[in-house]
Design a protein around this nucleic acid. Sequence first.
DNA 1: GCGTAACCTTACGCAGCAGTAGGTATGCTC
DNA 2: GAGCATACCTACTGCTGCGTAAGGTTACGC
Lengths: 214, 214
Amino acid sequence: MSSSSQPSFRRLPRAVRQQQMLDAAVTVFSRRGFHAASMDEVAEEAGISKPMVYAYLGTKEELFLACLHREATRLMEAIVAVVDDRDLPPDQRLWRGLRAFFRFVGGHRDAWAVLYRQARSSEPFARETAGMRARMAEVIAGMLAGAVAADERQARGADLEAAAYALVGAGESLADWLADHPQEDPDRTAGRMMDIAWLGAAELLRGGVWRSPD
Amino acid sequence: MSSSSQPSFRRLPRAVRQQQMLDAAVTVFSRRGFHAASMDEVAEEAGISKPMVYAYLGTKEELFLACLHREATRLMEAIVAVVDDRDLPPDQRLWRGLRAFFRFVGGHRDAWAVLYRQARSSEPFARETAGMRARMAEVIAGMLAGAVAADERQARGADLEAAAYALVGAGESLADWLADHPQEDPDRTAGRMMDIAWLGAAELLRGGVWRSPD
DNA sequence: GCGTAACCTTACGCAGCAGTAGGTATGCTC
DNA sequence: GAGCATACCTACTGCTGCGTAAGGTTACGC
């Protein structure tokens, strides 16, 4: 038996192993949740022993935060990259952002589970996620404000903020819906979202308000 | 020392203690999350000893499910009670349902945290919550379908379903937003939601579709 | 070819917590 | 006011899982 049948599983450089560990951690956290996941399982998933995880990534909490940061950064970068061009009309920017978002979710379901489901419930990480949501809402509110300004209308901050949060929530919910409908195309989901978001937003920005009869 | 100085804290009938325990459990679960919450803390919060909790409500998982059921039922009943009247126009029904929903959240924040934040992440309960979301989405999709039929138009099931889930998500997100803005009136939040949801929905139902340029 | 640093392991200490065993007090019925 | 059922307690057990101590092994520089 030549020992080269196991080419070079062992003795990998730190940078590589770290990424493997993070991959494993995302997988395990997404399927168990933060508390139910054990460091032993993460280590096993990564094909390594537990003390290595501690040596490279620190405690369980730090490990989870590292996952959170990596995935949040990837998601944000994917979106910002396509939204950044301020010369585009607002609906175009929204459309591109949504498409990038749903593509990310469609391609990284476990990452999405970690970012969204797990992180929002456990207290120490809720701040982190809330911050990300806030940045997203800010970006969206900015787009809406741009559209409003283009229409030469005024809008109060709280209204825009609330609308932005509603859109964020609608997007998250549709992301879950997408996760439950594997045959659905991410781009198509982005289109659905656009139908719902933009038509309503356009009407809103035009000054439409629903009036209760009482 | 007269023993009557402690009038009747102890020796309460089972039904009463059970409700106290459920109240305590909702409080503790909402502030710690399912895993981080300990049965000892629940018992202490209820002013009772741990074995009583086990005697009345069973294991930790069963206790959490009992909380979930009680609060979900309260929420659903509050909504269904005001939405049930099918003679009302769809926007009226939506408005009343939203108002009831945000009032519930505004008045029972810890219950909301248990229902939404905690239950969605931990696996054994996700089914439960998902079922509730599904029923809500169904109700909303039903309203939308009613509105579509009134307009004598056709709509595909998946479109309505996706729209309904988007609205559910937007509502949940605004509920969180409400929780973070204590000075905000629940009815006003319902109004904001109505602006966003109904104007867009109305446009959608009228047959409007956002078209991407590519 | 040899030392050294980095990689990697087995094996354990220790704490927190779910769940229980076994016993005590109290109100209610007759 | 005896007896019974039900409310209630203190004090444990056992397990799971985080985090670490102490030692083995491989690659790489010189």
